[in-house]
Simulated assay, not measured.
Amino acid sequence: MTVTARLGLPLIATGQAQKELTHNAAIHGLDRLVHLCVESRTLSVPPALPSPGATWIVGEGATGAWEGHAGALAHWDGAWAIAAPAEGTLCWIADDGIVAVFGGGVWNADFLPVAGLRVGGVPMLAAPPVAIGAPEGGSVIDTEARAVLESLLDYLREQGLLTS
């Protein structure tokens, strides 16, 4: 059977009997892999009573039906369907409440490989942070204004937008 290059979805062959089986298998494949959300990435033993449609990233040292599939996607729909993630696959990990990306053979949730951030089309965080000194000097000191400015500068430093 011929499959797609990226997601491995089955293709209908010319003159194939029971085309609905191939079509349905492709739809199920899309259902598993598009807008990917997994229950967890730490489980290494398949759950005893998985919910239909639930998916996991197979943990290290997997056993049972998951043995030998660490890092793969295990989807339950009456039986286990194991799929290798494609490079660049993004996934919501429900129990951690984070997004992970698959790259270089591993799932990484520590960083998302982005070149920068755009807000309203304006590049943000594209250049190294700049240093802005704290307010000082002058003949009239407005203590409240300085406190507000200092708080604002501290917050921007915490967010990585400014350096000290």
Score class of each variant (00 low, 15 high):
Met1Trp: 08
Val3Phe: 13
Thr4Asn: 11
Thr4Trp: 14
Arg6Ala: 12
Arg6Tyr: 06
Leu7Ile: 12
Gly8Tyr: 11
Leu9Asp: 02
Pro10Ile: 07
Ile12Cys: 13
Ala13Gly: 08
Ala17Leu: 08
Gln18Arg: 13
Glu20Phe: 10
His23Leu: 10
Ala26Glu: 03
His28Tyr: 01
Val34Glu: 14
Val34Cys: 12
Cys37Trp: 01
Glu39Thr: 11
Thr42Ile: 04
Thr42Val: 06
Leu43Gln: 05
Pro47Asn: 05
Pro47Glu: 02
Pro52Thr: 11
Ala54Val: 11
Ile57Asn: 12
Ile57His: 09
Ile57Ser: 03
Gly59Leu: 02
Glu60Leu: 08
Ala62Val: 00
Trp66His: 02
Glu67Asn: 05
Gly68Ser: 05
His69Lys: 13
Gly71Ala: 00
Trp76Met: 06
Trp76Leu: 05
Ala79Trp: 05
Pro85Phe: 04
Ala86Leu: 07
Glu87Gln: 11
Gly88Ala: 14
Gly88Tyr: 04
Ile98Asn: 04
Val99Lys: 04
Val99Pro: 02
Ala100Trp: 03
Val101Thr: 13
Gly103Phe: 04
Asn108Gln: 13
Asp110Ile: 09
Val119Gly: 10
Val119Arg: 13
Ala131Leu: 11
Glu136Trp: 07
Gly137Ala: 10
Gly138Met: 03
Ile141Tyr: 11
Glu144Lys: 12
Glu144Met: 07
Ala145Phe: 06
Glu150Ile: 07
Glu150Ser: 04
Leu156Asp: 00
Gly160Ile: 00
Leu161Thr: 03
Leu161Gly: 01
Thr163Tyr: 00
